[in-house]
């Protein structure tokens, strides 16, 4: 591998609670994700994949171990520094979209730029960037719609645009198709595949094999530890993908 590492975690442990009720959600996890990889994280509930996502997303800090994001050690950062990292380096895609209600798609996508620190982007440029991101996910027609006026798939596409707008080094998708029907799921996965082809680094949690099959590499968790970590041998549901691509074009 010549690509530079984006995620480097070493001996990562996360313990919840104190004393007798201590729970080890993650134990001694070591893994590396390189630039441009599309990784699926799988595992039963309670296997520690959500905890890992929270730590990868800088929403939480490890109890022990190191986490380097694009070469920067974030495991010792304080709340404010972590917020800045989330803003600048990470794009989140959640199962339940997590868009601000009663706020237009455009404003939702502009939100990460509102919290930019140091480099205040002019309003005009913010708009242009947000419009471009919405175009990328095929929602140029719907920029002034509010989430309640959009379908689930469309909401998730707004969320993807929001994740992209600050040009993050890492896109984290937590069950991105969990609330969607098959057709919308395929749409979302084709967008993620396209982003992957453009060179974005994507880490996605899912428990559906079909969805995981879009990735290059699948890491399975069990009881807070990595069970298996291997390249994806399957091809995605090509037939369905073609149909959707046809419809989209």
């Amino acid at each position: 591998m010549t690509q530079k590492p984006i995620i480097q975690i070493e001996n990562l442990t996360k313990i919840y609670g104190v004393g007798d009720i201590q729970v080890k959600a993650l134990e001694n996890v070591t893994m590396t994700v390189h630039e441009g990889e599309f990784v699926a994280i799988m595992g039963p509930s309670g296997s520690g994949k959500s905890t890992l996502m929270n730590i990868l997303g800088c929403l939480d800090r490890p109890s022990e171990g190191k986490y380097r994001l694009a070469g920067e050690d974030v495991s010792e950062m304080d709340k404010i520094q972590l917020a800045i990292i989330r803003n600048q380096k990470i794009g989140f895609i959640f199962q339940s979209y997590n868009l601000l209600p009663r706020t237009t798609a455009l404003e939702n996508v502009m939100l990460p730029m509102v919290y930019n620190r140091g480099n205040d982007i002019p309003d005009d440029e913010q708009r242009q960037r947000a419009l471009k991101a919405l175009e990328q996910v095929g929602l140029a027609e719907r920029v002034n719609h509010q989430p309640q006026e959009l379908s689930g798939g469309q909401c998730q596409r707004v969320a993807i645009a929001r994740a992209l707008v600050n040009k993050p080094v890492l896109i984290l998708a937590d069950e991105p198709t969990g609330n969607l029907d098959t057709k919308s799921s395929v749409e979302i996965m084709s967008i993620l595949t396209k982003l992957h082809e453009e060179g974005k680094t994507i880490v996605m949690v899912t428990h559906e094999n079909d969805i995981a099959s879009y990735s290059q590499r699948i890491i399975r968790f069990r009881d807070g530890q990595i069970d298996t970590d291997k390249p994806n041998g399957h091809k995605p549901m090509l037939q369905m993908k073609k149909e959707v691509d046809h419809e989209l074009s």
Binding site: R86, N98, P101, P112
Partner: peptide, 16 residues
């Protein structure tokens, strides 16, 4: 609370 969580996840600091 959820709105606050969303804002935090995309980079709002406590002081924001």
């Amino acid at each position: 609370t959820r709105e606050i969580g969303i804002r935090q996840s995309i980079g709002a600091t406590p002081s924001d």
